[in-house]
């Protein structure tokens, strides 16, 4: 474990908690893409099946359970409890255009053709594009609430910190996972446009960002 991976995990945890609390406190999921949240729940489900097969550390197990729990709680709040506030008209990204290619790629490019490994690879590829429905929805509505921008900032920051973690691990441990690195680079690049807006609009203090 290194400081970049730890802060990355904490940034990821912060993002997940920020979103969950925002929906819970405001009792509304307006402006939130339910599709992205379903994709994230799928990412955690397919990646953390090893909870059943191997124990890494208390930290590892605890975080995985928290991530899965919060992901499903968020999906529940969006599609059940606060369904009336779900903005389905703007959450129209065709997720099948993500899941099918990602599923196919996971079968073609992986480290090992075993069920657990293919599911892990699927989750890595899916996570890199899972935020697209949310970014698409923001571009359609033309604005995002401040809390949502903080959520996206921490979510983008987490994988950017993981990139540094992988540089660190390659240099000090000789460890690297090309699949995770390539997907992580793609994932972080998708946030670049948002990061620019977050930083520039953040300074001007306007409480809404208007992506191009």
């Amino acid at each position: 474990m290194n400081i970049f991976r730890l802060t990355g995990d904490l940034s990821h945890l912060a993002a997940i908690i920020i979103l969950l609390l925002k929906i819970w406190k405001t009792r509304s999921c307006a402006g939130i893409s339910g599709k992205s949240q379903v994709l994230f729940a799928l990412v955690f489900t397919t990646r953390y099946l090893d909870l059943l097969t191997s124990f890494i550390s208390l930290y590892n197990t605890t975080m995985k359970i928290i991530y899965i729990g919060c992901a499903y709680a968020t999906v529940y709040l969006i599609y059940m409890k606060f369904k009336a506030t779900y903005d389905g008209n703007h959450d129209t990204f065709r997720v099948e255009f993500l899941v099918v290619p990602v599923g196919g790629l996971a079968f073609l490019v992986n480290h090992d053709f075993s069920p657990l490994e293919i599911l892990w690879t699927f989750s890595i590829y899916l996570e890199s594009v899972a935020i697209l429905p949310q970014l698409f929805m923001i571009s359609k509505t033309g604005e995002a609430e401040t809390i949502t921008t903080h959520y996206l900032f921490f979510l983008g920051l987490y994988r950017a910190l993981y990139l540094i973690n992988w540089i660190w691990r390659f240099y000090f441990e000789g460890f690297f996972d090309m699949i995770a690195i390539v997907a992580g680079v793609v994932q972080t690049i998708l946030y670049c446009d948002f990061f620019y807006l977050y930083v520039t609009k953040g300074e001007s203090g306007s409480n809404k960002i208007n992506p191009a």
Partner: peptide, 10 residues
């Protein structure tokens, strides 16, 4: 068979 290294990252 290569020891199946557990994935220690989240």
């Amino acid at each position: 068979l290569e020891e199946d290294k557990p994935k220690d990252e989240l």
